[in-house]
Write a protein that binds this DNA or RNA. Sequence first.
DNA 1: CGCGGCTTTGATGTTCATCAAGTAAAGTGG
DNA 2: CCACTTTACTTGATGAACATCAAAGCCGCG
Lengths: 231, 231
Amino acid sequence: MELSHKISNCKECIYKSWVFKNLSEEELKTINQKKIEKFFRKGERICYEGDKITSFMYLQNGLVKLFKTELNTKEHIISIAKPKDFIGLLSIFSNTNHIYSITSIEDSTVCFVNLEIIKTFIKKNGVFALDFFEKISSVSDSVIKTRIDINTRQLRGRIAYILLFFTKHIYDSNNFALPISRKEVAELIDMSTENVIRVLSEFRKDRLIQIEGKNIEILDMNRLQKIYDLG
Amino acid sequence: MELSHKISNCKECIYKSWVFKNLSEEELKTINQKKIEKFFRKGERICYEGDKITSFMYLQNGLVKLFKTELNTKEHIISIAKPKDFIGLLSIFSNTNHIYSITSIEDSTVCFVNLEIIKTFIKKNGVFALDFFEKISSVSDSVIKTRIDINTRQLRGRIAYILLFFTKHIYDSNNFALPISRKEVAELIDMSTENVIRVLSEFRKDRLIQIEGKNIEILDMNRLQKIYDLG
DNA sequence: CGCGGCTTTGATGTTCATCAAGTAAAGTGG
DNA sequence: CCACTTTACTTGATGAACATCAAAGCCGCG
C-alpha cells in the first residue's frame, strides 16, 4: 500500500540546496507543483526491473536497495541508496526502462519528478545542468568503486566492508540495527547466507563486534578497518 | 614515446556526429582549435591514477584498458574501452583527480579536449548537454552491468564472457587476435592466470574454440553463449 | 498453534588460488 | 646475430576458501 501526499514545499525542503540550488524561483515553483512525494513502508516495492522510466527519483529519507532478479529466483543487490541519492542511477539518461528493481528496506520517502521536466531544465539552465551532473556522476562512480572494493576482497574483508558501510556511511554510529537480513547481506556482497552468518559469529567470538539479532555494535573499529584494508 | 600531431579537422571527424553533433559551427571551431590529438603505441600509458583531470578524453580508435593498482603490485582492470568511448568515465565530473590509470592495449588515438571548454558548452548549449549526458551515462552504466555480469558467474562463465565480448563487441568476427595477455584477462575477470589458461585449454579440448597463441577462433558460438547464460 | 521464512552450526564436497617446474617467446646488451 | 635475461605461457599437484547440503531452533504471522 502506498500513501501519496505532498509532505513539503520544495523551497523549504532541506535537500533543495543539495540538488536544486541552481534553479530559478520559477523553475523551483514548477518542480513543486509537478513533483510527487510518495511514502513507502519498509519492504514495499518502488519500481520493477523493466518498468518504463518516467521520473527522476530522489530519496528524501529512508533506505532503499537496488537489485536485479536472476534466473527467476536469485536476487542480486547492486547497491544500497541513502538519502540524497538518485535512486535510478544513470539509467534515466541512457535507457527507456529500468534495469534494476527498487525496494525500500526502511520506511522511505521518495520524490518523483517527471523526467521531461528535468530534461527541460538541463536544456535551459546550464548552471543547473552542470551541478546536476556532478552529483549524479558521483553516485554512479561510487557504485563502480564499491563493486570493485567488494569483489577484490574475500569473505572477511567483505563482511568488514558491510559493517563499516553501515556504521560510517549510513548510521554514523557504532551501534545500529542492520536493516537487511543475512540473506540480503549475502546478495549484496556475493557470498552464501551461511558464510555471512559464520563470519559474523567469528567476528563476535573475536570480540570485534557484538550481535543481538539485528542489533550490531562495533567493539573494535581499528581491527575491523584493518581486516577491510588487508582484504 | 608520444607522437603529438593534429590528424584531423573535427568537422570531418567521423565521430563528430556521435558526440558533437549538437554543437554550433562556432563551438565546433573552438573545439577544433583547442583539442589535442595524441597517438599512443600499444602499451603506452595514457594517464596515471592520481593525476589531475584537465581534459575530457575520447578514444578515436584503438583499444585501451582502465585499471587500478592495488598494494603496489597487483593490477585490477576495470574495463576495456573501444572507439567512441569516453575513457575517463564519470570521474571527470565528480573528481578532480583520475581514479584509474589508462594504458593502450592496441595502437590508439585519443582526443583531449580541455574540460573547461566542455563545461562551458554544457552551460551554454542545453541540447548538447543533454545529448552528451545520454552518451556518457550509457558508458558508465555498461561498466556497472559488466562488473555484475562477471562477478555473478564462475570461471567458465567468465571466460565465455570475455570471448563473447571480444568477438561481438570489439572485433565483430569469430576470428581475432586477443589484444591482452592471459594475465590481463585474469586481472579483468578476477581469477588467477593459471585458471584462465586452464579453462581456455578446456574450451579448446571441447572444440568450442581454437587457439594458436594470441589468435582465437570461435567454433561453437551457441554452446559458448549457453555457458555464459548458465553462469 | 502450526506453517514458512530466517537464523545458526556442523559436515561434506567443489571450486578455485597457490605453489612448483618446465617450455616457449620476447626483449636486451655485447 | 647470438647468448642471456626476463616475461609469458602451460600443466600438474596441493591445500585453502568457499558453496552446498542437512538438521534443528527461532520468530512472526495468519
